[in-house]
Computed example of a mutant assay.
Amino acid sequence: MQEHDMSWVRTEMALAQPAPPTERGAYAWVRKNLIGSVGDIVLTILGIAIVLWILPQVISWAFLNAQWTGPDRTVCTTVTQGGIQPDGWTGACWAFVNAKFGQFMFGTYPIEERWRPILVAILFVALLVPMLIPRVPRKGLNAMLLFVALPIVAFFLLLGGVFGLPVVETSRWGGLLVTLSLSFVGIAVSLPLGIVLALGRRSKMPIIKWLCIVFIETVRGIPLITVLFFASVMLPLFLPAGVTFDKYLRALIGVSLFAAAYMAEVIRGGLQAIPKGQYEGADSLGLGYWQKMSLIVLPQALKLVIPGIVNTFIGMFKDTSLVLIISMFDLLGVVKQNFADANWATPQTARSGLIFAAFVFWLFCFGMSRYSMYTERRLDTGYKR
Rank of each mutant, 00 (worst) to 15 (best):
residue 155 F to W: 09
residue 155 F to V: 02
residue 156 F to N: 06
residue 157 L to F: 13
residue 159 L to E: 08
residue 160 G to V: 10
residue 160 G to T: 06
residue 161 G to Q: 05
residue 161 G to E: 06
residue 163 F to W: 15
residue 165 L to Q: 09
residue 168 V to Q: 03
residue 169 E to I: 03
residue 170 T to Q: 13
residue 172 R to C: 01
residue 178 V to L: 15
residue 178 V to R: 02
residue 180 L to D: 00
residue 182 L to G: 08
residue 183 S to V: 01
residue 184 F to H: 01
residue 185 V to R: 13
residue 187 I to F: 14
residue 188 A to P: 04
residue 192 P to K: 06
residue 193 L to R: 11
residue 194 G to H: 13
residue 194 G to Q: 03
residue 195 I to R: 09
residue 198 A to H: 12
residue 199 L to I: 14
residue 200 G to V: 06
residue 201 R to Q: 13
residue 201 R to S: 11
residue 201 R to C: 01
residue 201 R to L: 07
residue 204 K to F: 10
residue 206 P to G: 11
residue 207 I to A: 15
residue 210 W to R: 11
residue 211 L to Y: 12
residue 212 C to Y: 04
residue 212 C to K: 01
residue 213 I to A: 14
residue 216 I to Q: 06
residue 217 E to C: 05
residue 218 T to S: 13
residue 219 V to I: 15
residue 220 R to D: 11
residue 221 G to W: 10
residue 221 G to H: 06
residue 222 I to W: 07
residue 223 P to G: 07
residue 223 P to T: 07
residue 225 I to A: 14
residue 226 T to G: 14
residue 226 T to I: 07
residue 228 L to E: 04
residue 230 F to C: 05
residue 231 A to P: 00
residue 232 S to I: 02
residue 234 M to I: 12
residue 235 L to G: 02
residue 235 L to A: 09
residue 235 L to Y: 10
residue 236 P to Q: 07
residue 237 L to E: 14
residue 238 F to R: 00
residue 238 F to L: 15
residue 241 A to P: 00
residue 246 D to C: 03
residue 247 K to C: 00
residue 253 I to M: 08
residue 255 V to P: 03
residue 255 V to R: 09
residue 255 V to F: 13
residue 258 F to P: 02
residue 258 F to L: 06
residue 260 A to K: 10
residue 262 Y to A: 10
residue 262 Y to S: 13
